[in-house]
Each structure stands twice: as structure tokens, then as C-alpha cells.
Amino acid sequence: MTATLLGSADAAAASAPSRGRARRRSRHLKWVLLFLAPWAAGMVLFFVYPLLATVYFSFTNYDGLNTADFVGLRNYVFMFTSDPLVKAAAYNTLWLVVILTIGRLLFAMGVAQILTKVRNGSGFLRALCYLPSLAPPVAATLTFVFLFNPGTGPVNTILGWLGINGPLWFNDPNLSKPSLTLLTLWGSGELMIIILAAMLDVPADLYEAAQIDGAGPWMRFRKITLPSIAPVLLFGVVNSIIFALQYFTQAVVAGSVASGSADAVGNSKLIGFPDNSTLTFPVWMYNEGFRSYHMGYASAMAVLLFIVSFAFTAILIRQLRAGKAEAS
């Protein structure tokens, strides 16, 4: 069962006798205000104000200790013309947005498809597929850096048995992001369950009718399954993009542990290890703002990140609006 986003509340309200509506509206306005008051306070304190302040700080030189000095566009000029690492960081995040989104979606769809076919022990199997997604990201990342450690890790050990000379995984700048991708796929259980639920929602008679018409499995998938789960896939796409845009913990922990550094977030010179290949946009932002005393510059990066992520959120919101228009 999948809920529709908009419409139900309106439908519910619309079904109430219309003559009572005006009276009720005035009566429950105070309730609306009361119920929404904590949320509104939170919205102002933790969303509206910080967003405005971020924009303001992005035009300042601000070290978090002294008052912010207005410096005009200097942070933006540095970001777009000078800083080589912000380019590396933007590239890494873009890479993750594209590969993680596609990878997660295909992988989750594949696993969900198999899960729909399994008849024996399916409950246990689903639990097994879903469980890794609950693992704390720090623990999951440590697990994968250990599994894939080039010297003595189980993955390369097993590859060695097969006569394959295992690569350096998290220690290789070309493979560190693919290794992070594997880690992320392992933990994409939530998306699997969402897609699985949508697949099971498709009426069985549609498939049976198609089968009678002689449609093969691929045809049935393309003509029936895919259109039926399309709205859920859109949600999955937007969700995965936002997830990839804020990719931080796994990158930081993997880089730090693989480098063998002794610091919690990785030594400032080893951040993004190896060769800045795990330096994502939020990681560089954190480094500049909270370690390098460049909170103004970090705010400029935040503004860019906000613009990009909001563009994708807007797509989702438009889809919801369209859904609402269709419903009414």
C-alpha cells in the first residue's frame, strides 16, 4: 500500500457538510496555530534564519571568533576561479550523484524483483537485505574499509584464492569512490523495500492478462511493472540525489581510516584520502568552515549546495502539485 501525498486531507474535509465549514474554520484556527507553533518556531530558528544567515555570511570574511566583515563577492570569486579543491570536491559529489543514483535505483529494483519471485524463506531474506541499511554509517564504513583493505582484507584474500591480484580499493584514487558505491548499495535496503511494496501493489491480473497475450518477462516488466512503480521511482531518484549531495560521513570515515591517520576526521592534509578522491563537497565545506577558520567561504559553498539541492526538491514538489491537480 502506498499513500498518496496530497488530496486525502482535502477529500476528507470536503466530505464534511459544507455549511459547517465556515464556522469550523474560525473555531479551529486557534488549534491550527497551537499545533503548528513548535514547528513554526523550529522553522524560523533552524531553517529560515540560518538560510538567510548563510547567504549573509557568504559575503563576509568570518572565522567564527570575530565579527563577520563584509568582503563582497570575494568568496564566490575564489570558489569559481581559484580553489582547485572545490573543483575536485564538486566533481566527486557530482560523480556520486550520478553513479549512486543510477546504481541505487537499478540495484534496488533488481533485488526487489528477485524478492517478488521468492516463495520460500522470503521473510528472512527480506530482513537480511534490509538490515544493512540500518547499520550506523560509521560502523558500515569501518566494516567495508576492513573488508576491502588491500593487505589482509577478506575480499582480496578471496580474490587471491581465485588467482586474482586484488586492487587497492579504498587506497586507490580511482577505486575509492566505486568502493564507497558498493558500501552504499549494501545499505540501500530502504529503497528496496519501497520498490518491493510498489511492485507487490501492481494487480496480479494485469500480469496474467499480459501473459495470456504472450508478453515475455521483459515486456511485462517494461509495460506493466515500470509504469506502475514510476511515481515511487521518481521519489527514489530525488531522494538518492539529495542523499548523494550531502554525502559526508562515509567519505570522511573511509578516507581517514584507509589513510591510517590518527585523527578523528582525518588529518587536515590527508582529508579526502587518497588524492582527494573522497573529498566530497560537504567534506570540503566542513574542512573550510570548521577547521580552517573560513566560515564565510564555507557559507558560499553552502549557498551553492542549497541552490543545487533545492532545484531537485522543486522537481519533487512540482510532481506532488501535479498529483494533487490530478486528484481533484
Binding site: S82, H294, Y297
Partner: peptide, 9 residues
């Protein structure tokens, strides 16, 4: 040299 200018006033 560019990065040094970032923190200045």
C-alpha cells in the same frame, strides 16, 4: 597565494 588572501580583510 590566492588562498592566503581568503582569510585577510
Amino acid at each position: 597565494d590566492d588562498a592566503k588572501a581568503l582569510g585577510g580583510n
